[in-house]
Simulated scan of single mutants.
Amino acid sequence: MVDDRLSRVFSALADPIRRDVVARLASGDATVNELAEPYPVTVQAVSKHLRVLEEAGLVTRGRQAQRRPVHLEAEVFDLMTKWIERYRREAEQRYQRLDAVLAELAEPEQTRAEGEVP
């Protein structure tokens, strides 16, 4: 089910370390050790974060000889973008309707102001 996957993705991205890992992987693959370097946590803790990202479908782990790079799965962002875009469009339509109502309310005031002689 799409909503379940979307929930896992948003839940995975709720953690600041995981969001930062995703941002770093956007510029290229990296190993667990490379990803763990800037954080004040153990490599095992970063591995757990990666497991959450992997279960959400945001990353995959490959194998290149002795190296096991972590790869960002960008198509998951299409799922998020479609969901966000749907609600953005709905909100935009509500604002357009509100603008129309406010314009109608302002018309009588403008008519009165134009009819007045100073």
Rank of each mutant, 00 (worst) to 15 (best):
K82H: 11
V9F: 00
P108R: 10
V76Y: 01
H49I: 00
D20H: 01
V52E: 11
Q44V: 13
A23K: 03
V43Q: 06
L58H: 01
V117W: 03
E34C: 13
I17A: 02
G28C: 12
E114P: 00
R112P: 00
V59F: 00
T111N: 08
G115D: 07
L50H: 03
A74H: 14
V70K: 02
R97T: 08
R112Y: 13
M1R: 05
A100C: 04
A30C: 13
L50N: 01
R88M: 09
P38A: 12
I17E: 04
R18K: 15
R94C: 07
A30Y: 11
S11Y: 07
A113R: 14
R67M: 05
A45T: 13
G115Y: 07
V22T: 05
S27A: 10
S47M: 07
R67C: 00
R63K: 15
Q110I: 09
A23W: 00
L6R: 06
V117G: 11
N33T: 12
A113P: 01
T81A: 12
E104A: 11
P38M: 04
I84F: 08
Y95C: 09
E55Q: 12
V32H: 01
K82L: 15
T111A: 13
N33A: 12
K48E: 08
G28A: 02
A26D: 04
R112F: 13
G62S: 12
L6V: 09
E116Y: 05
R5N: 04
Y95H: 08
L102A: 05
D20Y: 01
D3N: 13
E75W: 12
